[in-house]
Nucleic acid binder design. Structure first.
Lengths: 123, 123
DNA sequence: CGGAATCCTCAACGATACTG
DNA sequence: CAGTATCGTTGAGGATTCCG
């Protein structure tokens, strides 16, 4: 990265900081263990059922899946659609705000690849 | 976001996924409580001393500051410079890999602002 | 099928004191 | 100044069982 471009970004950060840091806030929303995996698998395939999501995410318990989904819903990232049938059928969908996270995940993806490349070249 | 652009990104994710997901890996490296605040304050001012960093980050204990810095160093994001003087003087610097995270933080910043805007308009 | 209710464990984190 | 050493705490997350 160019130095000038880097300093530009830092200056932008300094000048646009609200009361609560948006970065800290983002981490509060998606920082817990299963949030990103859930969002990720909804990005890959939207509208999954509860047990379908449980299978694709993999390794998550009912407790945590339900808790995470409820929080994501309350934060406006996920919408829950209940078909009101017997037996029950429920699907989970990303909201626009939820889909917006793909840019962030994209950067985490790119930076993570650099990290992994670095890890394998040293030590 | 356009739908086509969104699908393009998802397809790119699917096709470029290594054994360990780079996103999960990124979160493992910077996901603990103080990593991002530390990196953040080193972005704002590089080469801070231990106690200086402790003050600017704010609220962090010696235990956690030391532990976090050691891990960031081991992961190649931070370089520790010891002046070998009496009394001791040590400064902490971002590596290139560490500076690279500014793009990711930039996205977390932008998305966080959208989240905050959303939170204040509903409920 | 899509959860809710309970109980339990551990590891992240904090508080405090001390040191070369 | 830049840490280390110990101990204490808490809450995120896991395991299990049950339910309409």
């Amino acid at each position: 990265m160019e130095q000038s471009q880097f300093q530009e970004k830092v200056t932008y950060f300094k000048e646009n900081m609200p009361k609560e840091c948006p970065i800290t806030y983002s981490m509060k929303i998606i920082g817990s263990k299963w949030k990103i995996p859930i969002l990720w698998h909804l990005l890959l395939e939207d509208g999954q059922h509860y047990n379908e999501l449980k299978r694709t995410v993999g390794g998550i318990t009912n407790t945590m899946l339900t808790k995470s989904l409820r929080e994501l819903e309350a934060d406006g990232l996920v919408r829950r659609h209940n078909y009101e049938t017997v037996p029950p059928s429920v699907t989970y969908h990303l909201t626009e705000l939820g889909k917006n996270i793909s840019d962030t995940l994209g950067e985490l993806f790119e930076w993570g690849k650099k990290l992994q490349a670095h890890q394998s070249t040293d030590n």
